[in-house]
Simulated assay, not measured.
Amino acid sequence: MAPNKVNVVYSTLLLIFTLVTICNSYVPTPRPNLSVSFTGPKKPNPPGPGICTLEVPTIDLLTEADKRGPIPVGNGTKPGHSIIQICCSGWKPKPHVALKCEPVCENGCVNGNCTAPNVCTCLPGNIRDLGNNCVPTCPKSCLNGICTLQGKCSCSVGYVPDPKEQYCIPSCIGGCGNGGNCTAPNVCSCSTGFTKHMVTGKCNFNCVGGCPTGTQCVGPNECSCPTGFVKRNNACEPMCPKGCVNGICTGPNTCTCQPGWNLDTTGTTCQAYCSQPCLNADCTAPNTCTCRKGYIKDPSPSAANRCLAHCPGGCLNGQCSAPNFCICNPGFVKAPGSSDCVRRVRRSSRSLHMELIPEQLE
């Protein structure tokens, strides 16, 4: 073979080897299960499963010696860039096979095949358990038990059959509560945001630092008041939506009156109590009578519960019987156009008829 042809073949093989090496080593690190984004105007069809394309600076594809010479134009959509094939996120280069990628199962794939990123397909004779693992089942074997002649699992002490009776799962008497999983006989493992109760061993919601007085931990780091309460000033207070006038809301829809007050029939208003009835007045506070409009307090010390009618102008020769209304004393009458009472003028019941008297008598 001519020397020039040998050099051409050698250069071609060297370029292919370089590209394969870059493909196998250039693995992106975006979030799992996300493919590398394409930068070209059109997304080409990948040549195989798990293979994506990436646009990189062309100079990164050259050896140190080639970087000192002219930089090739490249086949990228931007000047000085080239498109290469790499393994997509969730895939890795297949050992000893060029331009082939295989899926990655981060937690392994025992008794199964990793058929897609973090997807484990169980082998025949195996079944997926509650932890998403492939475990052997009858007639091959029975996890945490033995296979019977009927092809079902007979569980060991502390284990019970799964709903399909294909393997045995640990049993926790009384359950594991919120956010708990029974991982061994009577052993609960709590999920993130939950904590194990020291006495019952069950998992409950965990609120770091605890909850304010009266509140309850209803979720991971979530404090809430019970039904019928509302959170105010970092504490739970009862609610009385129907009202609690002159009283104190001591519980959900529970109005409590203070001493000297009585709850009315609606259960929403506290009414003042006066030991003596209020005359012409209203009981506005315990043993406190407030005069109605047009009335004033009786000045007598023994009549604190009584109010008298008030006539601003007074009642001369009479009595104030209602607000601004006078009744005249006996022998007095109302003066025309006035509220004053004046003495009644007496007139003779008989009058002389002069026309009937004879003239001679004169």
Rank of each mutant, 00 (worst) to 15 (best):
V110S: 14
C105Q: 00
C155M: 01
I173C: 00
N126R: 06
G112Q: 03
N133K: 11
K152C: 06
S154N: 11
I127D: 10
I169E: 13
D162C: 14
V110E: 15
V157H: 13
C168D: 10
C138Q: 06
T115I: 14
C134D: 07
I169M: 15
K140D: 14
T148Y: 12
G174N: 01
I127K: 11
T137L: 05
V110H: 14
K164M: 12
T137W: 11
T148H: 08
G175I: 11
T115G: 02
C101G: 00
C105M: 00
C138P: 07
N126F: 15
C101E: 06
I173W: 06
P161W: 05
A116V: 01
I146E: 04
C168M: 07
P136I: 09
G108N: 04
I127G: 01
P170M: 13
N107D: 15
C176M: 14
P103A: 05
V119W: 02
C101A: 08
G125Y: 13
C172I: 06
S154M: 10
C105L: 01
D129S: 09
V160E: 12
P163M: 03
Y159K: 07
G151K: 11
P170E: 10
G151A: 04
N126M: 11
G108M: 00
P163G: 09
C138F: 07
C120T: 03
Q150W: 07
C109N: 00
Q150D: 08
G112F: 00
K152D: 14
N133F: 11
Q150H: 04
A116Q: 08
R128T: 15
V135M: 02
P136A: 10
N144M: 03
S156A: 08
T121Q: 12
P103G: 05
P170K: 04
V119Q: 09
C114P: 01
V104N: 09
N111V: 08
I169C: 07
G151N: 10
